[in-house]
Amino acid sequence: MSATAHATGHTPGDGHPEDGSKRDFLKMVTAASAFIGVGALAWPLIDSMNPSSDVLALSSVDFELAPVALGSAVTVVWRGKPVFVRHRTAEEIKGAEDVSLNQLIDPATDASRVKSGHDQWLVVIGICTHLGCVPLGNKPTDPRGEWGGWFCPCHGSQYDTSGRVRHGPAPLNLAVPPYGFVSDSKIKIG
């Protein structure tokens, strides 16, 4: 390699000025094929991070309502998340229905958050809409906040007996998961 010199002057297309556009076309076709190829290869890798079949197979749970006493609430696990199922007293239902919508941070009627004919049952995802903590209020000893629903210990958000946010910083009401009544005493979440 003692006499190695830098190769210069080997510009592609030297002496063939007429093939410039053909070369550009070939370059673009090559680049486009490579781009599509890499995209096709990347997709299986990315998709492998999505929920797998065995995770999707766990996407619904049945829950028996009978053991939940009037006035109490329980936590059900659905897709790894806590779901609050609350057996509301007549008083709590009335309180939730009577609030005028303009007092709410995220206006929604109580009727829109329960299944008609089953308005003693409130089913919400027990994750604060602020930053994802689980609010307190299911255990008898828990604080339920000023509006008698749930109180988030992380940043002090408060929810009412319809699971609607009444005091920030949470921006939205507790979400209602997709669910339905299999019978009067049994629900299927998911």
């Binding site: 299986p44 492998s48 999505n50 797998s52 079949s53």
Partner: peptide
């Protein structure tokens, strides 16, 4: 599980 359940796990 990679072979059966993970998306494209068999391919990986």
């Amino acid at each position: 599980r990679i072979m059966r359940d993970v998306n494209y796990g068999w391919l990986l």
